[in-house]
Design a protein around this nucleic acid. Structure first.
Length: 816
RNA sequence: GCGACCGUGGCGGAAUUGGCAGACGCGCAGGAUUUAGGAUCCUGUGUCGAAAGACGUGGGGGUUCGAGUCCCCCCGGUCGCACCA
């Protein structure tokens, strides 16, 4: 009987002794970088979702190794950030104390899972040897002009006394304090100018071998749109630029709306409207960023009391301010076309503004041009939004389709100096300041004389001080701002007393470059060694969750591009291939502590062994889609390993004739399993291995029986899935070396070929018989024997054969 | 609302280019072994039907000799984005 409780620890110990998994990064000849997204080391430890993800990554890495690659499969810990910090606050223990214990626990669990992790190259983002280089990257970006300081709104929870990320705000309330409304504060913060790279970030997507869903999400996030910037002029000559994707509808623009924060509002507000406008702006400022965007969408706004000239019609249109217009997008001002935009329509209805139709749904007939179209348009009670139809009420442009109208009207306005075509993106600059404690201090110093001064490279790292009062307070500043002994430093330039930046950087910066560090963890004088990096990067295979499809992957690509442009990297895309794995759910619902349906891997590994658990997880469903975790099936997987175990004990020693059918099945299996592992289709790879073992079981008592040639390839193919079990079998076969240093079994097309195929005979598309023929039998011969088949002739005789369809080696269809 | 993906036995899920639907596994039933239970092994297992056969991949229509697969409409689900002008 196979006993994982003794076999698995035995092999883990031996792997460590022999250094089986410690591939020498410097000496590797055929490098293959197999990366998985590193975990946040939570206090709860590894959950099945992590194990599922890591095992899938490990199988691919181990398979590549069997194919002869020098596979580098590192792991690290994303241990900075608000998660760790909030947990530390909750249990009232310093995060610096919690993290090492959590990491130790994770390591233990990861090892028990049997991963081929290279433990010589572990990293933790909280380690000063690591964040030294996170700060170095900040300085590199600063030097290149990609790090700038500007004012930005943040969510503030008065109860937590801290800034919240958008994800921590639920419908305007703090996620930790359901009764507390979050509001908006303006703070001066550091930004990385990722928007400068927006075209490359979008265009390069097409060249990447990434999950389609991930690329789509990135493209949506970047949000490219084409349109025009048009100028509306106020009487005093103030030019108000607006961005629109529908410049063809400018003849229908009956009013303007500015965002409440728009810098021109003061100037444009008439004196009698001052009070109203001021009040509205204050109210808008009170709303937190999230509520304003997703909360109650009842339109609100106030009239500024002034007008601007529509550049197309020359008419005066009223200028309003309303919070449905966002300052962060476009120019922070829109031309409202209520006839053809739902939001503008709703607003116009509410405030009694003019609605003018400028696109008719159907083409006016030549006999009764625009009049008829106008009539039908005026009946409408809702805006008409489509790229179909024709322009009406648009002067010389009447009759054009919207797409032609865009070109013609933009060109016409451009000629008159009131517009130009414009491409707009949704992506914003990346705010990296966090008014928190648990992160790498931003390496900047503010000096009264010299201004903003970067910390010299030689003074890095700026160590995060160990303070007890890491709890945030009312001020909106980092807890570090309470520690004068820390932030008071001499200015690096002039030596006078100056002040450190007290904010720390975003966790996403830690993870935006960690893959560069792994191969170079041995170098303490550089972030990443040029020769090592050239050898190992870009990453050959990256696997992770789609929850990081946008931010993490986008930021990593951005940092890589910047470092490339600075001449520090010779590639500009970090991940050649990326696949998003699926999610494991329980009873159809996402696992979460609040639902109480979290599955902890430890008990399963204790009971069934890591190998059984690994295979079971992979067999649940397609790796790229995930599946539902149930206890019922796991015994079946254990049964499978037990059967293979029994097979290996029956290995025939004599040199009998090999079973032809088994050899054929073997080669078919080699091909299928390799193909499936490459595509990460582990569930079907496992089922192919099961089929092959069933084939062997059927001949186990035969004379020639189970020869080494039939059994050993099964064990090798099983090795990526069940690494301990396979080692034990391999050893019992008399091998002194590791099965993981063996080679993937060679595939022979000739041996895989069937010497007889079954051809299905259909009459009118219904199966009426089957024939066994040699592969490649010509059509005429097959049809002839098909007609002779009793089951077939019953349905054919006495009827006229209209035609026959023949698919080589597969099917005959006789149409009568 | 917009975008992407998906819907197949009692269950999880298979099915290159349109070509035997239900691989593999779970569960279940019968049998062997066992004092019994468990474990193991063998056989069976989409539905209706005694059988021949008919029906069958969320529903409806279409293309085709042939549709789970392609096209159109509808219903249901999952994920992402969400006042982005």
């Amino acid at each position: 009987m196979y006993d994982p409780m003794t076999v698995e620890p035995k092999w883990r110990a031996r792997w460590e002794e022999r250094g089986t998994n410690s591939m020498d990064v410097a000496a590797a000849k055929k490098p293959y970088y197999q990366l998985m997204m590193f975990p946040y080391p939570s206090a709860e430890g590894l959950h099945v979702g992590n194990v599922f993800a890591f095992v899938g990554n490990d199988i691919h890495g181990r398979f590549r190794r069997l194919q002869g690659w020098d596979v580098f499969e590192p792991i690290g810990f994303d241990a900075f950030g608000i998660h760790s910090e909030n947990y530390a606050l909750k249990v009232n223990t310093h995060p610096g104390k919690l993290i090492p214990a959590n990491i130790a626990r994770f390591k233990e669990q990861l090892k028990r899972t049997g991963l081929m992790v290279n433990w010589e190259h572990v990293l933790a983002t909280t380690d000063p040897d690591y964040y030294h280089w996170t700060q170095w990257i900040f300085l590199k970006l600063y030097e290149a002009g990609h790090a700038v300081k500007k004012q930005a709104p943040v969510n503030w929870c008065p109860e937590c006394k801290t800034v919240l990320a958008n994800e921590q705000v639920e419908d305007g309330y703090c996620e930790r304090h359901p009764g507390t409304r979050v509001h908006q504060r303006y703070l001066s913060q550091w930004f990385f100018t990722i928007t400068k790279y927006v075209e490359r970030l979008l265009d390069n997507l097409e060249t990447l071998d990434w999950s389609e869903s991930t690329r789509t999400m990135q493209a949506n996030w970047i949000g490219r749109s084409e349109g025009a910037e048009l100028i509306f002029e106020a009487p005093a000559g103030t030019r108000i630029p607006v961005y629109t994707t529908r410049p063809d509808t400018v003849f229908g623009a009956t009013y303007l709306v500015l965002a409440p924060e728009h810098p021109l509002v003061d100037e444009l507000t008439a004196s009698e409207q001052q009070n109203e406008v001021g009040k509205y702006r204050r109210e808008a400022g009170q709303k937190d960023v999230v509520t304003r965007k997703v909360g109650d969408r009842e339109k609100t706004g106030v009239f500024t009391g002034t007008y601007a000239r529509n550049p197309a019609t020359g008419e005066s249109v009223p200028i309003w301010i309303a919070d449905y217009v966002l300052m962060e997008y476009g120019t922070g001002a829109i031309m409202a076309v209520p006839g053809h935009d739902e939001r503008d329509f709703e607003f116009a209805e509410k405030f009694g503004l003019e609605i003018r139709r400028v696109v008719a749904a159907s083409s006016p007939s030549p006999s009764s041009p625009p009049d008829q179209a106008r009539a039908e348009v005026e009946d409408d009670t809702l805006p008409y939004i489509s790229w179909g139809g024709v322009l009406v009420n648009s002067g010389q442009f009447d009759g054009l389709g919207p797409a032609e109208g865009v070109k013609a009207i933009t060109a016409w306005l451009e000629e008159r100096g009131s517009g130009r075509t414009k491409v707009q993106f949704r992506l914003h600059d990346w705010c990296i300041s966090r008014q928190r404690y648990w992160g790498p201090p931003i390496p900047m110093v503010y000096c009264d004389g010299c201004g903003t001064v970067p910390v010299p490279y030689d003074d890095l790292p700026v160590l995060l001080p160990e303070i007890d009062d890491f709890k945030p307070d009312e001020s909106g500043m980092s807890p570090l701002a309470r520690h004068e002994e820390w932030y008071r430093v001499p200015c690096p330039k002039c030596g006078k007393l100056a002040r450190r930046e007290t904010d720390v950087s975003d966790t996403f910066l830690d993870s935006a470059w960690y893959f560069l560090r792994y191969p170079s963890t041995k170098f303490d004088d550089r972030a990443f060694d040029p020769a090592t990096t050239e050898k190992w990067l870009p990453v050959d295979s990256y696997i992770g969750g789609n929850e990081h499809a946008v931010l993490h992957l986008m930021y990593s690509r951005f940092i890589t591009m910047v470092l490339h442009d600075l001449g520090l990297l010779n590639f500009e895309e970090p991940f050649t291939k990326f696949r998003a794995h699926g999610t494991i759910v329980k009873d159809g619902a996402k696992m979460s502590k609040s639902r109480g349906n979290v599955v902890v891997p430890d008990d399963y590994i204790d009971k069934w062994g890591a190998d059984t658990f690994r295979m079971y997880l992979m067999f649940l469903g397609p790796y790229l889609e995930g599946g539902d975790f149930r206890d019922e099936g796991i015994a079946g997987m254990r049964r499978f390993l037990d059967r293979v175990w029994t097979l290996t004990k029956k290995m025939a020693t004599g040199a009998g004739e090999l079973d032809r059918g088994a050899v054929r099945k073997l080669h078919q299996t080699i091909k299928k399993v390799a193909h499936d592992i490459e595509g990460l289709h582990y569930n079907t790879a496992i089922s192919a291995l099961m089929e092959y073992s069933n084939t062997l079981r059927a001949i186990e008592d035969d004379e020639a029986g189970l020869s080494r040639e039939l059994l050993e390839p099964l064990i090798v193919m099983l090795a990526p899935f069940a690494p301990h079990f396979s080692e034990e079998c391999w050893e019992r076969f008399g091998h002194a070396d590791s099965v993981h240093d063996a080679s993937w079994p060679p595939f022979d097309e000739e041996l895989a070929r069937a010497d007889e195929v079954e051809v299905v005979v259909q009459v009118n598309g219904k199966v009426r018989g089957r024939l066994r023929v040699a592969p490649g039998t010509p059509e005429a011969e097959v049809v002839e024997s098909a007609m002779a088949d009793e089951g077939v002739s019953r349905f054919v005789t006495g009827r006229e054969v209209r035609k026959t369809i023949y698919v080589q080696d597969r099917l005959v269809n006789i149409v009568v």
